[in-house]
């Protein structure tokens, strides 16, 4: 498939992105650059200076809602992407309502209990909907531990073991590696395997 063919398939696709932090902002930008037709993004939080070590925002955007700031950044990269931005702390009913028309959902929360909540909601209430999650991307180095594991329609990307802590902060290189692997997994599911 050449890039024009890829873009023509992707143009008709919608990805839901749950959370606009390190995983969500970077995977959204990767999908926007590749030519996804529509992104439905959601986050309740505002950009903080401490987020700039890994999240796709600029210093001038500190204090803005992440969902709105990300929409603005995507429009500057690829204005043909339709971005629906929701300022909301997602609960199961919102996930089912906002993401029902999606071809794929990207789980991009930071808290383990929120990751569990969305994966359980999608598995139980949205059968057949693929969901790509990021699990274990704190710290640095250890590229060789990062992998993708498939459990039916759940795709888990990360090392699976390195939780964020004082000694293992979340930093751009490893978080963006996982975010881009998540976007790459989404791309494969949306346009098919590379021949």
């Amino acid at each position: 498939m050449n890039f024009e063919e890829i873009k023509s398939v992707l143009k008709g696709k919608t990805a839901g992105i749950a959370g606009c932090g390190g995983l969500g902002s970077n995977s959204a930008v990767a999908l926007a650059r590749t030519g996804i037709g529509r992104l439905i993004i959601a986050d309740f939080d505002k950009v903080d200076e401490s987020n700039l070590n890994r999240q796709y925002f600029f210093y001038s955007q500190v204090g803005q809602y992440k969902a709105e700031a990300l929409k603005e950044n995507i429009s500057r990269i690829n204005p043909s992407v339709k971005v629906e931005a929701h300022i909301i702390k997602l609960q199961p009913a919102d996930i089912m309502a906002l993401y029902k028309e999606c071809d794929i959902i990207i789980e991009a929360f930071d808290k383990a209990e929120m990751k569990q909540m969305i994966v359980e909601t999608v598995s139980e209430k949205m059968p057949g909907m693929p969901i790509v999650c990021g699990v274990g991307m704190a710290g640095w180095g250890k590229n060789e531990l990062i992998k993708v594991e498939k459990f039916d329609d759940i795709y888990v990307v990360g090392d699976g073991i390195t939780e964020v802590s004082d000694e293992t902060p979340v930093l751009a290189p490893r978080v963006c590696t996982v975010a881009n692997m998540m976007a790459n997994t989404a791309l494969e599911l949306l346009i098919g395997e590379m021949k």
Binding site: D110, V119, G134, D152, G160, I161, V175
Partner: peptide
């Protein structure tokens, strides 16, 4: 049987 262990970070 699948047991997926969710951990914080993102």
């Amino acid at each position: 049987v699948d047991v997926i262990h969710m951990i914080s970070g993102g």
